[in-house]
């Protein structure tokens, strides 16, 4: 796109879209490292597949829409979408699941809505949701990391190399009427406990998130409001009914909570944009995550919660116009 009219200001700060996007990519390094450490090299091929699919899809669509390709490819936004999506999938996900998810994210969720800046839904979450609904079997089982001596460490015998996530077990346990603690106890993928795989991932997402905060790539409002809201509801429910509910620490450090708080809900395009609106938006996601985890049909509610609040974002913005100077 051409440069703009000669108009003030004639000074400009150093911020650019690509810088924002590449900071996000750098902030993903701890997460990639954690995957690598836990599951080895397979995550790299998954990321590469997602990235290449995204770039090809983006370039094709741009050509079809007769838009300049180079600038848009270099802005890094397609890469961010692809990598976020790939990092939501289990490392064992079949390649075609990755490709379908990314294609949906880029082609439908992003470009059919008008491209960068115009998409109503977070593309990564939309793509994730499509493959989750279409291929639940491939997405709900996570491989047990090689480094775990399966069974020995967790004290149980496991006869397969894949396992349900703690959130999934929590849900299954709930459906079978087992207390929360018992349902979770038998998994080597345990959250919050030492060596718990989910906890390691959550900590990696948090590390990346802190990097985003430190570089002022994201504002504290959304992560804080999301975590506070989820923690609060989980805390209240856990306190009222400790048998059925797993407690706030578990919820904060399992599933996609940290990824959502720092990387997904903070996607500026699909989030609310007024300061007060962002707090409402993120608190809404936190609440919805808990409702879906506790009572919904899927073990984790991050993607649904984010997409639902995406729909509400324009309305939230409308009702939270800030007070102008002197008003």
């Amino acid at each position: 796109m051409a440069s703009g009219p000669h108009s003030s200001p004639y000074l400009h700060g150093s911020a650019t879209v690509s810088r924002v996007m590449f900071t996000v990519l750098v902030a993903l390094v701890p997460v990639v490292a954690a995957y690598f450490w836990l599951w080895g090299v397979s995550i790299l091929s998954q990321l590469a597949l997602a990235a290449i699919t995204a770039l090809i899809a983006e370039a094709t669509i741009l050509v079809l829409r007769k838009l300049p390709v180079r600038v848009a490819l270099l802005d890094g936004s397609a890469l961010v979408t692809a990598l976020l999506l790939a990092l939501c999938l289990p490392p064992s996900a079949p390649p075609w699941v990755v490709v379908i998810g990314v294609l949906f994210a880029i082609v439908v969720a992003k470009h059919l809505y008008g491209g960068l800046g115009y998409n109503l839904f977070n593309p990564a979450m939309a793509g994730y949701l499509v493959v989750l609904i279409a291929f639940p079997a491939q997405l709900t089982l996570w491989p047990v990391p090689d480094m775990y001596d399966i069974g020995a460490e967790a004290g149980v015998v496991v006869d397969s190399t894949t396992m349900a996530t703690p959130l999934d077990r929590l849900r299954t346990g709930r459906l079978q009427g087992k207390p929360a603690a018992e349902a979770m106890a038998a998994s080597p993928l345990l959250g919050i406990f030492p060596n718990g795989v989910t906890t390691i991932l959550a900590l990696a997402w948090t590390a990346g998130g802190l990097l985003l905060l430190a570089t002022r790539t994201i504002h504290w409002r959304i992560p804080l409001a999301l975590l506070l809201s989820l923690g609060l509801f989980a805390g209240i429910c856990g306190w009222l009914n400790p048998t059925d509910h797993a407690g706030w620490l578990f919820h904060l450090f399992s599933g996609g909570t940290m990824a959502a708080a720092f990387f997904i809900a903070t996607d500026p395009v699909s989030a609310a944009t007024t300061p007060r609106g962002q707090i409402i938006y993120a608190a809404g996601i936190g609440l919805l995550i808990y409702l879906i985890r506790g009572w919904g049909g899927y073990p984790d509610g991050v993607a649904f919660a984010v997409l639902l609040m995406n729909i509400a974002a324009p309305l939230i913005d409308y009702f939270t116009i800030p007070r102008a100077y002197g008003e």
Partner: peptide, 26 residues
């Protein structure tokens, strides 16, 4: 040496600096 103009990504950076308390991106 102007950088290319991109679509608004609704990052809200403009909101944080607006002295008039407006929503520049809106």
């Amino acid at each position: 040496k102007r950088r290319p103009i991109m679509p608004c990504i609704r990052c809200g950076d403009c909101v944080d600096v607006c002295p008039a308390g407006l929503l520049p991106q809106q």
